[in-house]
């Protein structure tokens, strides 16, 4: 490509980048305004008075507990989903059995259920086994509902893994567990990082299940914390903005970390492969 082409390309890329950054800037300004300015003023205008007290309001609303719950529920659900999805995808794509495509089909159907159809039956089930108002109901629900999409993403990658590797491993007398945990799993680091990011965003931002299954304040998560500022007739949008900024920071950091892994993993697996 010639020089002019490159300049044009970078101009476009830069422009898109600015567009993608603006929402964060907007959200930050939003979090420092009051309702009137938020709705009547220009979105990117600086606040007339910087309402840092929005953050104080949020802090006093007991965000610490919510924060802790969000973190551990998200992390545990991600680990479970990634592990179970990898295992099932491994068995479906690499092992030989008659029912594999049928089982894959079942997982795909799981992708299609609208959550509002599921929520009332699920509540009933959890009620019967005494799991209502128990954070584990959230963890297993997140795991189950993210399994299908996670497997779909893994699928494309598992199909492309070279067969020679496992053949060689099996001939060397390697057990299946060893093959999966020591060879296959590390090879899929890039896609694992990808699904960790996706699962993280889903779990972190989810609130329908939490709202329905959890009633005690001590088990609620950050997204439910937002509901604290929505009133019958009045909503404190500035505080919601502050909550959104606070809840954005940890996944932003985690995202950058795993985003690097997407690339790192590749170079390491390329060496092995």
């Amino acid at each position: 490509m010639n020089r002019l082409g490159y300049i044009f390309l970078y101009l476009c890329l830069g422009l898109v980048a600015v567009f993608q950054i603006l929402p964060i800037v907007w959200l930050f300004l939003f979090s420092l305004k009051g309702n009137r300015e938020i709705f009547a003023g220009s979105p990117f205008a600086l606040p007339q008075e910087w309402k840092w007290e929005n953050y104080l309001t949020v802090w006093e609303g007991g965000i610490g507990t919510y924060f802790f719950n969000s973190v551990w529920i998200t992390v545990v659900a991600i680990i479970l989903t990634s592990l179970l999805a990898s295992m099932a995808t491994f068995a479906i794509t690499r092992m030989q059995w008659k029912l594999s495509s049928l089982v894959l089909g079942l997982f795909m159907v799981g992708l299609m259920i609208p959550i509002h159809s599921a929520i009332i039956p699920l509540f009933n089930m959890f009620l019967n086994v005494n799991l209502i108002d128990n954070p584990w109901s959230i963890v297993i629900t997140y795991t189950a509902y993210n399994l299908p999409i996670t497997m779909m993403i893994l699928l494309g990658f598992y199909y492309t893994l070279p067969r020679e590797i496992e053949e060689a491993a099996i001939i060397d007398g390697c057990s299946i567990h060893r093959l999966f945990f020591r060879i296959i799993l590390p090879m899929t680091t890039p896609v694992l990082s990808t699904i960790v990011i996706i699962n993280m965003i889903y779990n972190w931002n989810e609130f329908v299940f939490v709202n329905t299954f959890i009633s005690s304040d001590q088990y609620k998560t950050l997204t439910v914390g937002i509901q604290n500022f929505i009133g019958q007739y009045m909503t404190d949008w500035g505080a919601i903005g502050a909550t959104l900024i606070i809840s954005l920071l940890p996944i932003l950091l985690a995202f950058i970390f795993f985003s690097n892994k997407v690339v790192e993993g590749i170079s390491s697996s390329a060496v092995k492969g």
């Binding site: 009332i120 509540f123 009933n124 709202n211 329905t212 509901q227 604290n228 009133g231 019958q232």
Partner: peptide, 15 residues
């Protein structure tokens, strides 16, 4: 909150 309240009433009443 208001809407969540209505949704939850629905869920609770079904059970």
């Amino acid at each position: 909150s208001n809407e969540q309240y209505k949704d939850k009433m629905k869920v609770l009443s079904t059970s």
